[in-house]
Nucleic acid binder design. Structure first.
Lengths: 147, 147
DNA sequence: CCATAAAGTATACCCCCTAAACTATTAACT
DNA sequence: AGTTAATAGTTTAGGGGGTATACTTTATGG
């Protein structure tokens, strides 16, 4: 295999697998102690789709439905989401409550400040364009589009 | 804030936080069912440093020492690592056993095949150079160098 | 020589995940 | 229509991840 591919894989592993964890822990904000990254992501997905079912969440997060089930339970207890019944009485559509929207908004703000500073401190104007290209390509590669 | 920084942060979040998880779950190999990503990473770090203490592992993985303690316990039970006593009888140096080296080697191979294919399928020869540049830059940004 | 610091361990408590069993409801097929 | 199969979710058991705190053992430094 190409040496450069090999290096890319190493870097991919190092940066994506382990670096991400470090960044998440470095974001020091009360919000992140109160809600887990997975919970926040769930809010984000619900917000993005407006209303969503558990099964679709499981699909989007690549996770077993029982994992979603317990997550939903916690979000309901915290009153960040609510259930909307549909005609099909097996399924439950989920949507954000006002408080859920607030939490999501705050979380976005915190992250934007942290990462924004990180990026603007270390990436100059010329590089930022290439960064965007890179991230878009990366997203494409790991097939994250809508699922 | 610059609109492009904003987009970069969004992509960063999406790709790094959530995309990584998806990739990890997509790597379908018995090895990954037997050993957790954290355990593998621990093996990798031990291998990289030859011998290492728990405290240094905690530092490198940005994790509380008690988390390392339990991880080490599991790796010892699986006989992937062993303890080497030093003069300072408080500390325990850790090193890989033969079996630990095997596991690490296999895991690297599996990952290399999976990610290697992903990359070489979707990134052409010209792009790969830029990929390397940006992974290196990314690594720098999230301050992962040696700690 | 004693107080303080450092390396690890143990425990309690939380989150995340899977697999398998189970309920309820709807779709499908003979 | 009536029975069978599929689908949406929940629950439970079991294992991994993490934190904080208290505690032991061993060094270090006044």
């Amino acid at each position: 295999m190409d040496e450069r591919i090999k290096e890319a894989v190493d870097l991919f592993q190092e940066v994506m697998f382990y670096g991400t964890e470090r960044v998440i822990r470095a974001v020091d904000n009360p919000l992140w102690n109160e809600y887990s990254p997975e919970q926040i992501q769930t809010l984000k997905l619900i917000s993005k789709e407006g209303k969503i079912t558990s099964s679709r969440l499981a699909l989007l997060q690549s996770v077993h439905k029982s994992a979603i089930s317990s997550r939903i339970k916690k979000l309901l207890q915290k009153e960040l989401i609510r259930i909307v019944q549909t005609e099909d009485r097996r399924e439950k559509l989920l949507e954000l409550t006002e408080s859920g929207k607030d939490v999501l908004e705050q979380s976005d703000k915190v992250l934007m400040e942290y990462l924004g500073k990180l990026l603007s401190d270390q990436v100059n104007d010329k590089e930022i364009e290439q960064f965007l290209l890179f991230f878009r390509k990366l997203k494409e590669i790991i097939k994250m589009d809508g699922v």
